[in-house]
Amino acid sequence: MTENTHKSPAMFTNLLARRETSVAIILLLLIIFMSFANEFFFTQRNLLNIGRQASVVAIVALGQTLVIIARGIDLSVGSVIGLSAVTGAIVAETTGSQILGIGGALGAGLTAGMFNAILYTRLHINPFIATLGTLSMARGIALLMTGGIPVSFSGWASWLGAGRIATVPVSLALMFLLAALFYFVATRTRAGRNIYATGDNPTAARLAGIDVDKTRVLVFAISGLLAGLGGLILAGNLNSASPDLGRGYELDVIAAVILGGTALSGGRGSIPGVILGALLMALLGNAFVLLGVSSHWQVVTKGLVIILAVGIDGVQRGRED
């Protein structure tokens, strides 16, 4: 095809215009800078550590990405992490069964996700409000179940949270595995198509015969399920399920999604982007620790990075109203 010769420069500018690329470049620059700034940074141990820190945010963010692409939002993920961890730990403790403990944690996450979906699609509550309600309820239930005291949670959960395959942390391997699966779902499956169409223009999608409600249920269910998995990993890493686990995680998760180029207005977003976003967040955290900068600055910078990344995008696109 002759047009291929014309295509390559266009493809190159296209690639440059994508948020994934700018996040990747920032990530790379930060890695180069840190390698010179701190001798401990570019060691296998530290890099895998960053990977482990990124993995929970990234795994939960995968579900969140689908939700946001479908023009929803799930604010409840942080609390669902806590609720799932506590549920899993209690189930494992009372039944003595590892597998039931894992099932309990994932089940709690899935239930919370389905609950959000019902609030949204059946009761027509705006997802921002619906999941804000769930955020509070899930945390409250976790506290009630434990009386506020952490429950010990080890066995298979600690393998997920702290185990290694060769030298690679299990949670990091799981992150890459799930990322590959979600990439496939988003780009190659019918469900993926429905998700993008629903978020891009829900009315047009509905008129085209796409089952918009079913799609919304699916994405919220997945988001809940992955928050449950996130809870398992976090609790396993600490060998303990605290009802406070995952507090504030929704910010990191949504930040990773937005950094990765997913538009809050729906219909646009990519899986590689969100993984890069989660890695960047974890890398920043690690850099601050190694450079001995106050963790208070870390909080400020996190916010600044989100505003910058989205701000550049907004200035490029111009106003839309």
Partner: peptide, 23 residues
């Protein structure tokens, strides 16, 4: 407002109602 999927390609706009048959 009700017809196009504005961020989608021409191809995906056209196939949106036929996903059953195309999968």
């Amino acid at each position: 407002t009700r017809g196009i999927l504005p961020s989608h390609s021409v191809e995906r706009n056209i196939s949106a109602s036929s996903l059953d048959r195309l999968s």
